[in-house]
């Protein structure tokens, strides 16, 4: 892989802002364009930029294989867990309004939509980085 000092310096400056922007998009999903998928892909793309501008192993040390698998599973389990929480509260699967929190049902639903967005974001950011890193790793060997 070809890389130069210019690319590495720009990547080092850009990557934190990219990740911050991705997190901003995830948590602002309910009020502005964006959401878990879009923000998660942006955070994942920052790891891909790191892998392209430095090398695969430096991206691998930032988020290791085990961390990525854990994030992947955490996102999916969080979403399914919110659905099961509604079952426990006596409602239907994914019926957010039934969860007993000291708020108006509409606010509970809004909060759960935000949590689901965060769960999707965690899942997608791990998956996007994971797919690229493993495919590129296969090319190297």
């Amino acid at each position: 892989m070809m890389t130069t000092v210019v690319i590495q310096t720009i990547a080092r400056v850009v990557v934190p802002f990219l990740q911050l922007f991705g997190l901003y998009i995830i948590v602002h999903g309910p009020v502005s364009p964006g959401g878990g998928f879009q923000g998660g892909v942006i955070v994942g793309a920052s790891m891909i930029l790191l892998a392209l501008s430095y090398d695969l192993s430096s991206a691998e040390t930032k988020v290791s294989h085990k961390v990525r698998i854990a994030m992947d599973s955490t996102g999916a389990l969080l979403f399914a867990g919110i659905g099961l929480l509604c079952l426990l509260a006596g409602g239907v699967f994914l019926e957010y309004g039934i969860i007993p929190l000291p708020m108006v049902p509409a606010e509970v639903r809004g909060l759960m939509i935000l949590l689901v967005g965060v769960a999707i974001g965690i899942h997608i950011m791990a998956l996007a980085a994971s797919l690229f890193l493993h495919l590129a790793e296969e090319h190297d060997t």
Partner: peptide
């Protein structure tokens, strides 16, 4: 839902099953 973004409301609330199934697919 108290959420101004209708796309997010449809995606995560009204059609939550759809999104959960899709998350399962990519998982």
């Amino acid at each position: 839902t108290g959420v101004p973004n209708m796309v997010t409301a449809v995606l995560a609330d009204y059609r939550g099953y759809d999104t959960l199934g899709e998350l399962t697919v990519i998982f």
